[in-house]
Nucleic acid binder design. Structure first.
Lengths: 180, 180
DNA sequence: CACTACATGTAAACTGTTACATGATTCA
DNA sequence: TGAATCATGTAACAGTTTACATGTAGTG
């Protein structure tokens, strides 16, 4: 159901083909929120068309079909977004790795943690650059989702970074291990 | 594969039965990292036993079986944790909802965002309480995973909270909508 | 003409969820 | 003894991923 909502959300911003939607999932959406590949997306678009949530508004070169929301599709998305969310499905491999770090020898855990510090710092720098670009020229249409995503991602990585630093301190408090 | 690693990680901290592991997934692990129910866990434990990664060390009342890691299991977990992580699988319904908020009318989006502010604030308070408890009596064994989780969750919700506040400001900048 | 990017699809395998099922032990 | 919790499982279904498959259009 969430894949369906993700597609409705993207199409709400602006009509698009399955191919374009697939690329969207390779960006921020797939990075922070929901992963999907073209083999899931194309059949789902067809089912959504059958269910009257989207319609083909244009057929272009190379057999491409541009989909747009129908009023029913827009309403379906709205009621999903408005309903109380509850816990929802969570599945994040990176976070799982963090939780299981205690299973490693302190020296090994430190290697992994240091790698995480570097990675998150790099992402933070990258996202601050993107934010600057957004400030210079505010994005519109589907790109506005990228603005939400960049701000979310930035805070996310800052949180991860701060956690990692804490975890390294915790390690050294416990075992007196010190990294560079 | 990630479910398998999650189980190995929990068993690395301390031997447990499928039932106990299931409850663990209902706590922080299922909340932030990886969701799983007993119907997935029991068959996976059996497969892992076949593969020599875990073994039954004790059979107790009510047909309960306590599993422990074998050396092979420990090595499997270690190499997974040490290998470079890449992007990994991400699937988070709550984040998806955030990204798609732009599809709503500003007034509706504001309702949802205000709900998010309240929710995240409540979680932050809750987790600060848990952290205080951990400081008073440092946890050991499998509970230490809860300490990692609580610290991670706290930073996570703080990031979410900060993002939501930003998103509300963004809305009012764009449309001049104001919430309470 | 070769290569890359565009554009869509199916089938099998794998993973995960929901519904159903069973029985043991503890506690009021 | 009835209810709650402990404890494990199977089967059908839903959802995802991987591998395979095909053809079009533009670029050097």
């Amino acid at each position: 159901m969430s894949l369906r909502m993700a597609l409705l959300g993207l199409l709400a911003a602006e009509p698009a083909s399955g191919y374009e939607l697939t690329k969207e999932f390779e960006q921020d959406l797939g990075r922070y929120a929901w992963r999907a590949g073209h083999t899931g997306i194309y059949p789902e678009l067809n089912r959504m068309a059958e269910d009257g949530l989207v319609e083909v508004t244009h057929e272009g070169a190379r057999n491409s079909r541009t989909y747009a929301l129908t009023p029913e599709g827009r309403e379906e998305l709205r009621s999903w977004l408005m309903e109380p969310a509850g816990q929802g499905k969570v599945r994040n491999e990176a976070v799982l790795r963090m939780f299981l770090l205690d299973a490693l020898e302190p020296a090994d855990a430190l290697i992994v943690l240091n790698r995480m510090v570097d990675d998150s710092m790099q992402k933070i720098t990258e996202l601050r650059g993107i934010r600057q670009k957004h400030e210079d020229s505010p994005p519109t249409g589907r790109d506005a989702l990228g603005e939400l995503a960049a701000e979310y991602g930035l805070r996310q990585y800052e949180a991860t970074h701060s956690w990692t630093v804490w975890a390294i301190e915790r390690l050294s408090r416990r075992y007196g291990v010190h990294g560079e």
